[in-house]
Structure formats: C-alpha cells, structure tokens
Nucleic acid binder design. Structure first.
Length: 187
DNA sequence: CAGTGGATGCTCT
DNA sequence: GAGCATCCACTGT
C-alpha cells in the first residue's frame, strides 16, 4: 500500500494505517505513533460548517498538509484524506523521534527526547512546520513518508481537546508506545 | 504529582 | 465577542 493509495481512501481506514509510518521533513522526523481522524460530516472537524479560507486545503486532493494555528500559539498539522470535496483529514499528534534529534532540540529549546514530538503543537515546532506549509504536497521533497516494515498494532480511544463528538474513538495510538501525548502513566 | 490558569491570535457567529 | 483539534509554569499537597 503506497502513501498515495492510503490517503485516497476513507479517513477511518487511513488514520490507523498511518500509525507506524515514518514522516521526515528535510530529513528530520520520526515514526508516527498517535493520530486522530476528522471525518466528513464530523461536528468536531474544521470542515463541518463548510469551506472557508482556513480549511480550504481539506477540501482539495488527498496527500496534502493542512496546517492551522491552534490557541493562537501553536501550529497543528494534518494529512488530507479521501477525494476532493469530502474534507477529511488525519491530525498528527505525536511522533517517536528517530531522525535529526539535534535539529528538533534546537527548534524546541528542550533536550529531553520525550518532549520533542509528543503533542500536536510540539510536533510541528520540532519539524519546523508552519502556516507556510499549508497545502504542501507530502509526496514531494522536502517531505518523505516511509512505510512500516509491518503494520503497527493500534488502539482506538476518544479524541483529545474537543467538545463536540468527543465520544467517538477516533484517536489511534500505537500499542505500547511510550511516545504518545498521553503516555505519562503508561508502562 | 494533580489541578489550574495564562499566553496569544485567528476564525467564525 | 466567544471559542478554540495546546503547552507550560505555577500552585498546593
């Protein structure tokens, strides 16, 4: 399954399938260990009330980055899925850092590996992603997506930090990973 | 530790 | 003018 094929399908299939892929931006990044699905007709999705200047990329072709500013401070990055017009995306919530840790440390201003990419705002800062990357094609440099050797084992849980449709289990975490944004108590 | 609140800006009502 | 798909520092145990 190629990246292009994966993101062209339903976001409900694509989101868990993206866990385990390695995302690199200019050679810096890591293994995707936590994502959330934002589906068409999903009250928690930015696209729910129709196309606007901010969410326009969500309505376009799959495999693009949708980047938006969160709480006035952070950037959050999504992978657009499904066919043009459907407006679905996968929020990247955490990576296990594997490549370019020193560049991430420089951008983040912290040294502890656990704090580099464990959270959507941290992840974008570590990879250097901003609103300037909104709409970028993830199949072209400087982006690189490397499939996992074997499909990861994934747990589904409720999404984080939302109020509407908070009960559907559309957050997907690699089982046993200690790099997710809510792994503080995990063994 | 756990819980709380401030920072900060943009989008949409 | 409200409400965020967040993070971090600070409080009180």
């Amino acid at each position: 399954m190629t990246f292009r094929q994966l993101v062209a399908g339903s976001v409900h299939d694509a989101a868990p399938a993206l866990v385990g892929w390695t995302l690199l931006v200019d050679g810096v990044g890591g293994r995707i260990v936590e994502v959330e699905a934002y589906a068409p007709d999903d009250p928690a999705s930015h696209s729910f009330r129709g196309k606007t200047a901010r969410n326009g990329v969500m309505f376009g072709p799959p495999g693009r980055l949708y980047v938006y500013r969160s709480y006035g401070i952070h950037w959050c990055a999504n992978v657009v899925c499904e066919q043009p017009g459907t407006a679905a995306a996968v929020l990247l919530r955490a990576l296990e850092p594997t490549h370019g840790l020193d560049r991430m440390r420089g951008r983040r201003g912290v040294t502890e590996a656990r704090l580099l990419c464990s959270g959507p705002g941290r992840l974008t800062q570590a990879l250097g992603l901003t609103g300037a990357d909104d709409g970028a094609d993830l199949s072209l440099p400087p982006f690189e997506l490397v499939p996992p050797a074997a499909r990861a084992t994934v747990d589904a849980t409720p999404r984080i930090g939302i109020t509407r449709a908070a009960e559907v289990p559309w957050r997907f975490v690699e089982r046993g990973s200690s790099w997710s944004s809510r792994a503080r108590r995990a063994a």
